[in-house]
């Protein structure tokens, strides 16, 4: 047979492509469940990181079960729309943030750390090259940030990708998203600068667009929770936290 004829070449290429496609489809099909599970466990470990728990992936599932006491979906008015924890966990934030804030379904994960409730809010936004996302946990006063964690898909290593470092993320602890009962979110500013009426963290030098992306993401995602957070602040159960708030107000008035 003439191996250099057009017919032979054509048939050879076609058969090869069909065999390869079948093999890849088979591999993908047989490993899909395991991969999906890995993605879920990775998400659990990220949520845990936002309440300062660093657990290896192998333990993330168990630690998540112990720490996260409930998860549910709320709407922009702060009303619970679904108590289904699995639904709240699986909700695709990348689709929710495209909707107007009033129509979004908003997941809240409640964690119990040393007997104290923390409210974890998922974040999703745009960096320079691709999506960035993260989780921010608030104290039960609905105002003070307990911790935050960020991830990204393809930010520049050494510049924008620095948002995943502890140095950047640790700055968020103790900041306030409300100032004098007004929702202000947090600013991400060039090191040394201060914002009016707003708590701020230092941006990544050289990662300006990514830092701005974090700021926009925080405002966009947290503002949808304004009603919910105000509800938490009004709750009488957290006396200590309210006292803190009053002290701060007193400071401001001085």
């Amino acid at each position: 047979m003439n191996k250099n004829s057009n017919v032979y070449t054509f048939i050879y290429a076609s058969v090869m492509v069909i065999i390869v496609a079948a093999a890849l489809a088979f591999v993908n099909g047989s490993l899909k469940d395991k991969q999906k599970k890995n993605v879920e466990i990775d998400k659990m470990s990220q949520i845990l990181k936002s309440v300062k728990i660093n657990s290896p992936l192998s333990e993330a599932e168990a630690r998540y079960g112990e720490t996260i006491v409930s998860s549910y979906l709320i709407d922009a008015q702060g009303k619970t729309v679904s108590q289904d924890a699995a639904e709240a966990f699986a909700l695709d934030m990348s689709k929710e943030v495209l909707k107007p804030a009033a129509e979004r379904r908003l997941p809240v994960y409640e964690a119990l750390i040393d007997g104290q409730k923390k409210y974890i809010i998922p974040l999703y936004g745009a960096g320079l090259w691709g999506p960035i996302w993260g989780y921010i946990s608030l104290e039960s006063d609905g105002n003070t940030v307990y911790a935050a964690t960020f991830s990204h898909e393809g930010e520049t290593p050494g510049l924008g990708a620095e948002i995943t470092t502890a140095k950047f993320q640790e700055q968020f602890s103790g900041k306030h998203v409300f100032q004098q009962q007004q929702f202000r979110s947090l600013a991400v500013l060039k090191a040394g600068h201060k914002a009016d009426n707003q708590d701020a963290v230092d941006a990544i030098s050289g990662g300006t667009v990514t830092s701005r992306g974090v700021e926009t993401m925080l405002f966009d995602c947290l503002s949808a929770y304004e009603a919910f957070l105000k509800g938490l602040q009004a709750a009488p159960a957290v006396e200590q936290a309210t006292e803190n708030n009053e002290n701060e107000q007193a400071n401001v008035e001085e």
């Binding site: 591999v27 993908n28 490993l31 395991k34 991969q35 890995n38 990775d42």
Partner: peptide, 8 residues
């Protein structure tokens, strides 16, 4: 695919 399933 194998790494994604067994060494995430």
């Amino acid at each position: 695919q194998i790494l994604k399933a067994y060494a995430y």
